[in-house]
């Protein structure tokens, strides 16, 4: 119980750190990474919540969150390289590379 409480505290602190980066982060990629790592921390926190309340069934929910987080980050990143979430990976990217347009924002 104590171990889980300490782990939950550490994860909440990590969430706060990711949150600071998402709010302050100067570039787009800081924010994408902060959002992704925040999702990972949420997955871990939900798993820990299950063990804290003595109901490890919550692990299934945490697994589903991991899937959603993964797909969401992929959608955001593909959006920035192809300007649309659903273009095939094999198609050539637009003439201007995204890093030239987005990196400086």
């Amino acid at each position: 119980m104590t171990m889980f409480a300490v782990a939950a505290t550490a994860i909440v602190i990590a969430m706060v750190l990711a949150l600071i980066r998402a709010i302050a982060g100067p570039s787009l990629y800081d924010r994408v990474l902060a959002g992704n790592s925040f999702g990972t921390k949420t997955v871990l926190l939900i798993g820990l919540m299950g063990f804290l309340t003595g109901r490890p069934d919550f692990l299934d929910i945490a697994l589903l969150y991991a899937l959603i987080n993964f797909t969401g980050t992929l959608a955001i990143l593909r959006f920035f390289s192809y300007r649309t979430p659903s273009r095939a990976l094999a198609e050539p990217s637009p003439k201007t590379t995204p890093s030239q347009k987005e990196g400086a924002v």
């Binding site: 949150l19 998402a22 709010i23 982060g25 787009l28 924010r31 994408v32 902060a34 959002g35 925040f38 999702g39 949420t42 926190l45 939900i46 919540m49 969150y65 987080n69 969401g72 924002v105």
Partner: peptide
């Protein structure tokens, strides 16, 4: 900065889901 707002709203949803 609208992109920051979009990412923060995703984080908001994750927090409220937790």
């Amino acid at each position: 900065h609208l992109f920051a707002v979009v990412m923060l709203s995703g984080i908001y949803s994750l927090l409220s889901a937790a």
